[in-house]
Design a protein around this nucleic acid. Structure first.
Length: 789
DNA sequence: GCGGACTGCTTACCT
DNA sequence: ACAGGTAAGCAGTCCGCG
């Protein structure tokens, strides 16, 4: 038989591999079998014994199925190895253990990944599959993937705060796709988009049927891996229902491993946009500061979502019991599903392209960090190059690596002050270009084939003859990206084709920037202290020699961080600055390049609070179009109150845009006055801090921990990872004593907000304008610095 | 007994 | 569960001061 389509998802049970292939006419399931194997480095004469040996496991004899001799690359050297085939993946660790006198390789690779790598089968890419009772042939074809997507959201009855599946029903399920949006429920609701069923069971069954009728491929939601899907599963079990969210009436599987939940929906892919938003924000693909669905929607789409602030989570159960409010609850639920569809338009394309470049399924990609993505790509590449895939380090090895961190980038201390005429240059993709230019790879290190090698500033030597897997793969990604960027220029902005290619080049960029991480991440297969430290040492070398040359030419180098250099032009022209850049580029090796980032007419660098030196990683620049670029200041941090951040922003604008320091002082005076008069709403005074640990494992007392503990006593549930928003109230002695969550705060302490929020945020900038702290104090009484204003 | 200096714990930012 | 460099807040402790 023959079908063409793309691999949507793959799962494996006992011995069979199940492939879900999406074709033009629907999703088809094909099963395949496959012999697992590993590599053995052993002398010729042992193999006869191994061929015959049997080990007993639970009384069952286990033996190898077959073997062959192959030539393979092991740590940069070509060797003869045995490829040992087994009957079942579960036999591999047993046989490996019996062979512990010899070196084995690739014995701990997940079966599905092994299968996909060996078949050179890439999820989301199209193939023609020729198959009978197993797959006989896979031929790549040129077709684009496409998905039927649906977003959903559930509401639960919650009279005791957190819903409990044993007694609290799911009261609504909303969904939205490209065509329609509906709410399923089982009480009367006066909205045209609502479908009312006789009971909860019927509602759940109907939801499963809707997925099947619409032939959904991607099930989208927000925090569905942690809440909606597990709750649906648990609730169905309580009701004695099969929750057939999968294709062919197959049930959803919820697996707990450790603190993480793994969800499988046969034939479909659940995509939780919450971890996706966090991931893409972390690596700078989008900028999001807080991760509630509402905030993400607002920050990505730029307008308020349709969901109004009409529903408080803890009131959902009351609204369900009130006929008029139930209508509003339905609006709210529908709004959430629609919002998920909208944010998916921003987040999903990059994830899809990432999956296609790194060779993982979309499901895995959407729940993986960059480490896994690069690892997957390198594993595929290693197989293509007949090169051994390094092992995952064991626990003690990870600890050993962690104990011994690698020296990283250089940061120059800036002289605090307000500057004019600034030029900023940076090295384009510094670490990737160093890796490629110097062929840095664990297995090109200390080769025995070259005399003339790349020698790092630390003295490590890298081969000049055989290209390493890391530089080779990286170079391919970068070449592809350059090609795409050229194509992009020919297309009209925001056209469908343009957006697709834009997402593709972003995916390539994300991946390219993660290769350095693979050499220094203690859990990485391709970890190498020598490589990682060589990359950073070359980085320091290039930036420091650039600084030196700039100074020799008479530029003032104000600041530098890792790959950037900031010059004060003084009496020099822009042209001279560009000539300096050219002269640097002439001497750089390989594909390394220093680029102009921009010219800035004005900028502020501040001093550290604890010393007179300049603060690194904190500055503000204004470009020629009047756009302000801010790094590190309180106003970009979420753990400062809105009032402090807004005041800091306003005075920066007054100084950088208007050049008016009187105005800046006026703004501060005004804000302090309003704080004193109690005019500032509590919402503007909230300080958000994430609790990275469980509340009981803190060694210290701090405002966020103390506020959270008090809230827990009042019955609130706060888990590890929660973002708590607190207010410093008038009630208590220490700051921690005064801290209360926003919902429990009744007043605020103006002294705190003036002296500990506004003053530190603005003073460090105003100091650069001549407003000295000592000078302020000399003015007199010990009322605090605010008395000056 | 009080305030400044300093340390340890912790979070969030920059590249 | 990406690394390392960095700033900075709060709580607690040490130290000097008469």
């Amino acid at each position: 038989m023959k079908i063409s389509g793309f691999l949507l998802n793959i799962d494996y049970s006992s011995e069979d591999i199940t492939l879900w292939i999406k074709t033009k006419t629907g999703t088809v399931r094909i099963t395949d079998t496959y012999d697992p194997y590993f590599y053995l480095d052993a002398p010729q004469n042992v193999i006869k014994d191994i061929e015959l040996f049997k080990i007993l496991y639970n009384g069952e004899p286990i033996q190898i199925k077959n073997y062959e001799k192959i030539r393979y690359w092991v740590k940069g050297k070509e060797k003869e190895l045995f490829k040992i085939y087994c009957y079942s993946p579960s036999h591999i660790p047993l046989i490996k253990k019996a062979l512990e006198d010899f070196q084995c390789y690739e014995y701990k690779i997940r079966f599905i990944q092994r299968y996909l790598i060996d078949k050179q089968l890439w999820p989301l890419k199209s193939y023609e599959f020729i198959y009978s009772n197993k797959i006989d042939k896979i031929v790549p074809i040129d077709e684009e993937e496409n998905f039927n997507i649906l977003a959903f959201d559930i509401e639960t009855y919650n009279p005791s705060g957190i819903p409990n599946e044993k007694k609290d029903p799911i009261i609504m399920i909303s969904y939205a796709d490209q065509k329609e949006a509906k709410v399923l429920t089982f009480k009367k609701i006066n909205r045209e988009f609502v479908i009312t069923y006789t009971n909860e069971e019927k509602m759940l069954e109907s939801f499963c049927n809707i997925l099947e009728e619409k032939d959904i491929d991607l099930i989208l939601g927000y925090n569905i891996n942690q809440f909606d899907l597990p709750y649906l599963r648990k609730r169905a079990r309580v009701l004695g229902l099969d929750l057939t969210l999968g294709k062919e009436n197959l049930e959803i599987l919820v697996k707990k491993n450790g603190s993480n939940t793994k969800i499988e929906i046969p034939g479909r892919i659940p995509v939780d946009l919450y971890p996706v938003a966090r991931f893409l924000s972390n690596i700078g693909a989008v900028r999001i500061t807080r991760f509630t669905l509402k905030r993400v929607y607002h920050e990505l789409i730029g307008e308020k979502s349709e969901t109004k602030e009409l529903v408080k989570k803890e009131d959902i159960w009351k609204m369900w019991n009130n006929e008029r409010e139930r209508d509003i609850l339905a609006d709210y639920s529908l709004g959430d599903s629609k919002a998920v569809i909208e944010i998916s338009k921003h987040l999903l394309p990059v994830e899809i392209e990432l999956a296609k470049v790194c060779g993982l399924t979309l499901e895995e990609t959407a729940s993986s960090a960059t480490g896994r993505l690069v690892e997957s790509l390198l594993m595929r590449k290693a197989h293509e190059r007949n090169e051994i895939i390094p092992e995952i380090p064991r626990h003690h090895e990870v600890l050993e690596r962690q104990r011994n961190p690698i020296k990283a980038a250089y940061v120059k201390i800036p002289e605090p002050g307000i500057y004019i005429n600034i030029a900023v240059f940076d090295f384009r993709s510094l670490y990737p270009s160093i890796i490629i230019s110097h062929n840095i790879d664990p297995f090109t290190l200390n080769c025995d084939c070259c005399e003339n090698t790349h020698v790092s500033p630390l003295g490590h030597k890298f081969c000049k003859k055989r290209k390493g897997i890391i530089p080779e793969t990286l170079e391919e990604l970068i070449t592809k990206r350059i090609k795409l960027k050229k194509e992009m220029k020919k297309l009209t902005k925001d056209s469908e084709e343009y957006n697709k290619i834009f997402a593709r080049q972003w995916a390539l960029k994300i991946l390219a920037n993660s290769f350095y991480g693979q050499t220094v991440y203690p859990r990485a297969r391709w970890y190498s202290r020598e490589c990682g430290s060589s990359i950073t040492s070359w980085g320091r070398h290039y930036i420091l020699s650039t600084i030196e040359k700039a100074e020799k030419l008479g530029f003032d180098v104000l600041y530098s961080d890792t790959d950037s250099i900031l010059l004060i032009l003084k009496n020099k022209t822009k042209k001279e600055a560009l000539e300096f850049m050219e002269s640097i580029n002439k001497e750089l090796p390989g594909n390394m390049e220093l680029e102009l980032e921009d010219f800035y007419p004005r900028g502020v660098f501040v001093s550290k609070r604890t010393s007179a030196t300049g603060a690194k990683k904190k500055y503000a620049l204004i470009d020629e179009k009047g756009m302000i670029k801010i790094r590190g200041f309180e106003l970009v941090r979420r753990d400062w109150s809105k009032i402090a951040k807004k005041t800091q922003m306003d005075i920066l604008k007054a100084i950088l845009q208007d050049g008016d320091k009187e105005k800046a002082v006026k703004i501060v005076k005004q804000t302090i006055q309003e704080l004193k008069e109690g005019k500032i709403p509590l919402e503007d005074l909230v300080i958000y801090t994430q609790l990275q640990k469980n509340i009981h494992s803190y060694a210290i007392k701090s405002p966020e921990v103390s506020a959270a503990k008090k809230a827990i006593k009042r019955g609130k549930k706060i888990e590890s990872g929660a973002l708590v928003g607190y207010i410093i109230t008038k009630n208590g002695s220490s700051i921690s004593d005064k801290a209360e969550l926003l919902e429990f705060a009744e007043d605020y302490d103006p002294e705190y907000y003036i002296n500990k929020q506004i003053m530190p945020a603005v003073l460090k900038i105003l100091k650069e304008l001549g407003y000295e702290e000592d000078e302020l104090k000399a003015k007199g009484k010990q009322i605090g610095l605010d008395s000056f204003f």
